[in-house]
Amino acid sequence: MKYFCLSKSTIFLFLMFLFFSCTPKKNILYYQNIDEMASAKLNSYEIRIQPDDLLQINISAEDPKITAPFNLNPMNVIAEGNSQTQLNKSAINDYLVDADGYIDFPELGKLKLSGMTRSEVLALFKKKISAYIKNPIITVRLQNFKVAVHGEVNGPGIVDVASDRITLIEALTKSGDLKTTANRKNILVIREIDGVKSYFRVDVTNADFINSPYYYLAQNDVVYVEPKNRTLSPDLTLVTTLTSFAVSLLSFVLILTR
């Protein structure tokens, strides 16, 4: 009987080969049918204001004195020529949207903003403030835009969004991307609209998901990435995988030593 001595490097390379060969590309590649899709212009997307949103709303003009009644912190924004200067970044004009969708704005009273886009909010304030101030400068910004990502990602947690929108792929990327154990064909997105929760499952291996209403995430969306095998915990999945590797390696060694 002839015996072969396997080096550590040979065993390592063989294990790596087994590891990567166990996961078909069709289960891990994104946008697999992108070449089959006709080029299409994405619909414009704007977030909609919801209860518990924190809005920063500033009203300014050439003469800061006339805007003072419309700002919680009148000295927060002034005009210097054609530019605006923040005098006190800690003193901001933040308004919390209440459970009924209203904010209480100086001089204008209660305004219902829930369900409106940022552009619609700007148009509303432009119309109301223009009755008092000529050519007002109005800025509206959502201060607490965030989404939660958990499950089979490398860095689960809360993703803070600095801009007005974020895609599902951007949120996953900010969370360290998907693990090899992630089920890319069944990512759950939980969204609440007007107090009603909706659920949608996204297949990121199919490029057509970029046309879904969940390609762009809304504030407070929850993204859950489930494992490929729902019946096994991550630890048990790892044990099963290592056991499979060990059996395969043992079979390989037995073949060589016959």
Rank of each mutant, 00 (worst) to 15 (best):
N206L: 09
D53K: 00
Y216D: 04
V253W: 03
E170Q: 15
Q86M: 13
S212L: 07
E152D: 06
C22K: 13
Y102R: 03
E192W: 04
T181W: 00
L72W: 07
K179M: 13
T241E: 11
I166G: 08
L188D: 02
T205I: 01
P74D: 11
F125L: 13
N43V: 04
I66D: 02
S39H: 08
T243Y: 08
S39E: 12
G157Q: 09
S90C: 04
M75Y: 07
R141I: 01
F12I: 12
E226L: 02
M1E: 15
A162G: 10
F12V: 08
V239G: 07
D63C: 00
N186T: 00
L236H: 04
L188R: 12
A68V: 01
Y132S: 07
N33L: 08
S130T: 03
F145D: 03
L178N: 05
Q84D: 04
D177P: 00
V121W: 05
N229W: 00
F125S: 07
I255Y: 11
G176M: 04
K228G: 02
S163T: 14
V153W: 05
A91I: 00
A131Y: 02
D194A: 14
L168Q: 12
E36S: 14
T85F: 15
I92P: 00
Y224G: 04
K134M: 06
D53N: 06
K8S: 10
L254Y: 10
V225S: 05
N73D: 03
D63V: 02
T180S: 10
E120F: 01
P213M: 06
V247E: 11
L178T: 05
L250Y: 09
A207W: 10
V159K: 04
K179P: 02
D94K: 07
K197G: 01
I11F: 00
Q56N: 12
Q32G: 06
D194H: 13
S244K: 13
K112P: 00
V223M: 08
L236C: 02
V253E: 14
L168C: 09
F125W: 09
L108S: 06
F14V: 07
C5R: 13
T241F: 15
Y30V: 03
S9H: 03
D160H: 14
A246S: 15
I66K: 12
L232E: 08
